[in-house]
């Protein structure tokens, strides 16, 4: 249990401005912590800054005030190459749209971040990718091209891809936002399973209060501020 208490993600007074067309403060001194194995959801009205926060937390957006620590290391003032490496190794990301590469088959799509990390042989990465697809129940589609899959299947491939390097944390920005009721449920159940069976740390932005209520912790945002964190 001690290991589970280790803090993996720390947002310290994060503020963010947009200057176009007018300077507006989209995030206002956001601070919170996540420990290993936490399953956290972020909810809030449209436009309150959830996506903006997630892009900062995932190191893709570096233009902010305050500090971000991942695995105890500050991400402030780090070079692009270093951040790319952090994203590759420690963060899995699932978007509202699936964002698979249409040039590669499903298996290769899942493998790409693993190959990029370059810590295991091609064969090992291939094997891992296949295992992840199995967890998500879509190993049968491994050799199809992305455009031969349904929306729900694509999103599950994207989740498999986010898992390939066994990341410290998986972030999702409305991963079910583009899915119908049935597919949303499947994806929800997968996240539940990841959290409870595999103790994967998850940070998911969602509009679905029912889904949020099943997570360990709900962070509620309003106008760029955290108003409630249970």
């Amino acid at each position: 249990m001690e290991n589970n208490q280790k803090i993996i993600l720390e947002a310290i007074n994060i503020s963010k401005y947009f200057h176009d067309p007018l300077t507006i403060k989209v995030l206002n001194e956001v601070s919170f912590c996540m420990s290993k194995g936490d399953f956290v959801s972020i909810i809030g009205k449209s436009g309150c800054g959830k996506s903006t926060l997630l892009y900062i937390l995932s190191t893709m957006d570096t233009d902010f005030e305050g500090d971000l620590k991942i695995d105890g290391i500050s991400m402030k003032n780090k070079k692009g190459n270093y951040l790319a490496h952090i994203r590759n190794e420690k963060i899995g990301f699932v978007f509202q749209f699936h964002y698979l590469l249409n040039e590669f088959n499903v298996l290769k799509n899942v493998m790409l971040p693993g190959l990029k990390l370059n810590k295991k042989s091609y064969k090992e990465v291939e094997h891992d990718a296949y295992e992840k697809l199995k967890i998500l129940g879509i190993e049968k589609e491994a050799f199809k091209m992305p455009n031969q899959l349904s929306g729900g299947q694509k999103q599950r491939v994207a989740i498999a891809r986010s898992m390939i390097n066994n990341p410290l944390i998986i972030m999702g920005d409305e991963p079910t936002g583009n899915l119908d009721k049935k597919n949303s449920e499947i994806v929800f159940n997968i996240f539940q399973e990841l959290a409870h069976v595999y103790h994967q740390s998850l940070l998911i932005v969602t509009h679905d209060n029912e889904f949020a209520s099943k997570t360990h912790r709900i962070i509620e945002m309003q106008d760029g501020k955290i108003i409630k964190s249970s």
Binding site: N81, H85, L101, N102, L112, K116
Partner: peptide, 16 residues
């Protein structure tokens, strides 16, 4: 554009 964005989001650097 999308493919490039996803490559970068999943850890490919600008140099890659």
């Amino acid at each position: 554009m999308d493919s490039i964005a996803i490559l970068k989001a999943t850890g490919f650097s600008g140099k890659d």
